[in-house]
Amino acid sequence: MSRALSNIVAIILTTIVLVAASSMVLMNSKLVINALKPRIVVEPKVQCINILNSSVYLCTVRTSMSYCGALKIVTTNGSYIINKCFSPEKPVIIVLNSKPIAIALGNRLFAVEVR
């Protein structure tokens, strides 16, 4: 009887130890794996072209991943907010009457490619 009891106690203790140990390993590995993951953030990409030497610019706006929300375009003549759904595949076309300088997503600022 005492032998059987001691076996049960041993099994319980062993399980506790094993769970604790494996949890520690897995948690560390998750940290490592997270560090190894590619950086996936929403990055807007805006390319603009000047139209016929005028002050008008046509721009394509894409994002690195699907994103619905506001993007702020900063131009030489002020800022504009576009509230749309953006994706990497299908760009959003916008027309600006002044030269674009940068695009803001939240508090991050990105450069605009202008030709």
Partner: peptide, 25 residues
């Protein structure tokens, strides 16, 4: 052996996810 199998399995799953994410990137 049981513990080792569990750990390796966990790592394999994690690395598979990692590969897929890198592939997409």
């Amino acid at each position: 052996e049981y513990v080792a199998t569990l750990v390796i399995l966990g790592l394999m799953i994690s690395f598979s996810i990692l590969v897929l994410e890198w592939q997409k990137a």
